[in-house]
């Protein structure tokens, strides 16, 4: 069974069409890098997969089912963390808050709940700093906690929205490697949005490029080349390969700055 099937999917946001007529099939166990300039619709797509945004037209199928608000099969790591930065609570408490956090009642975890939190923290190698207040954690440590949180409930699909944002290159690679290890250990499907292609090159099975309301899914060779990207963006794009790294350049400046800007 495929993990995700998009059929003629059109998504609109405040009257603006963000994606239109997108077709894509993602297999179970794939690691997909999702790229595109700011505003291309990466977050919007993830939110539609989570059932937070209803398609204008077309269909989404997740493990054969339509998207479901609160789907236990999908683990999610949101892009924006408004409340987080100045918290003086421990990582453990923050991670644990997501375990059945939508249910009414007292936040009593019980032995089984504590086991699940401990499992998630071990899986992302965050045990040693989980007792520290998150205020004092580095960006990379923070991302590991958020990943642990997304793993609670053992989802089969992980939707990670810009986990590399504001990390320096060394930590970027560490986070990608960690996600890859987790993905392989648990045999789950991963959608990983990012602005920078290179840290993900070793980890991705395929890429999904979004731009100009359209999408292109395929291997790095098939999608990240001048012809394919120029067609997607409707502007001339050059792709250079330098010592195992890929550099995407717009022939006329504009697109490149947007397409692969570091959001640090």
């Amino acid at each position: 069974m495929s993990a995700i099937e998009l059929t003629k999917l059109t998504l609109r946001r405040s009257g603006r069409t963000v994606l239109s007529g997108v077709d894509a099939v993602i297999d179970e166990g794939e690691f997909i890098g999702v790229f595109g300039p700011n505003g291309a619709g990466k977050t919007t797509l993830l939110q539609a997969l989570l059932g937070l945004l209803r398609p204008e037209s077309g269909a989404i199928s997740i493990f054969g089912q339509p998207p479901l608000h609160g789907n236990p099969l999908a683990g999610y790591m949101p892009q924006r963390r408004a409340a987080m930065a100045e918290l003086r609570l421990t990582g453990w408490d923050v991670v644990a808050s997501a375990l059945d956090g939508h249910r009414w009642g007292l936040p009593i975890l019980g032995a089984e709940g504590r086991r699940q939190v401990a499992w998630a923290l071990e899986t992302v190698e965050a045990v040693e700093f989980a007792r520290r207040p998150i205020q004092h954690l580095s960006g990379g440590e923070m991302q590991r906690l958020l990943l642990a949180q997304a793993l609670l409930g053992k989802p089969r699909l992980l939707l990670l929205d810009e986990p590399l944002i504001s990390l320096d290159p060394r930590y970027q690679q560490a986070v990608v490697d960690l996600v890859k290890r987790v993905q392989q250990a648990l045999h789950i499907t991963v959608l990983f949005t990012a602005h920078e292609l290179n840290p993900l090159l070793g980890a991705m099975d395929r890429v999904l490029y979004l731009g100009g309301g359209r999408a292109k899914l395929g291997t790095v060779e098939d999608v990240v080349n001048s012809a394919a990207l120029s067609q997607l963006y409707g502007a001339p794009i050059e792709v250079l390969r330098v010592g195992g790294r890929i550099i995407v350049v717009a022939a006329h400046g504009e697109v490149e700055a947007h397409a692969h800007r570091h959001d640090a």
Partner: peptide, 8 residues
Amino acid sequence: LEPELAEA
């Protein structure tokens, strides 16, 4: 703690 995630 996690408004975005809670909403999701």
